[in-house]
């Protein structure tokens, strides 16, 4: 068997190199997607190493309640505080840096939840079809017929306003989009003969859905995941801004914008920099998503 092992390694290494080369080539065709990738990598790095990057981690509530320093309130952007300080004298740069953690966490949670629910629903509805499929997709349609932000608001309002509940509210809104996407993909993959061939071998429905069909619909899910990260962050920030998400003094971007709104336009830096952070994050995920869409050659939406 060692010969086979050898082959395995040589072959797969060769193939891996080859496909990596192609992917790199496709990415190069679309330089903006590389910018997006750079932004995302940067954001993740910042989120992970926030305590070491931020000059005043305690201002963002690192290891305890956010510190206050009223002597220093509303300091204009300067070398000491590049993004200025807020009404409690906290360093906005440090808070924006820590905000990355909340936004990424929110996006990840929401989408993991949405994919966890939406993908199986779409798979079952698409492959099993019939009455079950109809019921599942009609439920999905009901969710889809209400604008997401409105629905998220409707879910968030009765809950205690908090970051966690905001995440739940958004996740509830989000899964139907994945159900719909996967359903559409499954409908076409289902007709491929390898699905029938698998049935002819005696494979169970579960096996066919998850082992045969699912790998063939991963590409659009990946692209949508990337595109959606931006939107999820945006909606999370919107809920924060409306006071339904993370509560002050949590350094969440939307919450910070809402807080700073009261001090516009004199203390313009308070709302502006968290806004710019949202803009960059959303842009980054969108650019990456677009690039992935080209690389994986899929249509989403």
């Amino acid at each position: 068997m060692s010969a086979i092992e050898n082959w395995y390694h040589s072959e797969s290494m060769e193939n891996r190199k080859e496909s990596a080369r192609r992917i790199a080539y496709r990415f190069r065709q679309n330089p903006l997607s590389l910018v997006g990738l750079g932004i995302i990598v940067g954001l993740v790095f910042i989120a992970i190493f926030a305590p070491y990057i931020a000059r005043h981690p305690q201002d963002a509530g690192y290891m305890g309640e956010p510190a206050v320093d009223f002597a220093n309130r509303f300091a204009e952007p300067s070398l000491a505080h590049p993004f200025g300080t807020d009404q409690a004298g906290r360093d906005i740069l440090s808070r924006v840096i820590f905000g990355t953690r909340y936004s990424l966490a929110l996006g990840l949670f929401v989408l993991t939840f949405a994919i966890g629910i939406g993908v199986p629903v779409g798979l079952v509805a698409g492959y099993v079809g019939g009455f079950t499929g109809q019921v599942l997709m009609r439920i999905t349609d009901i969710f889809l017929s209400v604008p997401p932000l409105v629905l998220a608001l409707a879910v968030a309002v009765p809950l205690q306003p908090s970051l966690r509940n905001a995440m739940i509210a958004i996740a509830v809104v989000w899964w139907p989009w994945y159900a719909r996407l996967v359903y559409g993909e499954v409908i076409s993959v289902r007709e491929e003969q390898f699905v029938e061939a698998s049935r002819g071998i005696g494979a169970s429905r579960i096996r066919i859905m998850f082992r045969e069909i699912l790998p063939n619909v991963l590409a659009p899910i990946t692209v949508k995941f990337s595109l959606d990260m931006g939107y999820a962050i945006l909606i999370g920030a919107s809920l924060g801004f409306l006071g339904l998400g993370a509560q002050p003094p949590t350094p969440e971007w939307g919450t910070m914008i809402a807080e700073g709104r009261a001090y516009l336009p004199a203390q313009w830096w308070y709302s502006t920099f968290p806004g710019v952070a949202i803009f960059i994050a959303v842009l980054g995920f969108n650019l990456l998503g677009d690039g992935l869409r080209d690389v994986l050659d899929v249509e989403v939406d």
Binding site: E192, Q193, F194, E196, A197, S198, G200, I201, G202, E212, P215, N216
Partner: peptide
């Protein structure tokens, strides 16, 4: 009940591009 029968009857399809899962 068909599962054992499936061991005995197998199908070869017209278009091998469609009958082989591209991800495997």
């Amino acid at each position: 009940d068909l599962k054992p029968v499936r061991r005995e009857i197998q199908v070869v399809y017209q278009d091998p591009t469609s009958s082989l899962n591209p991800r495997k």
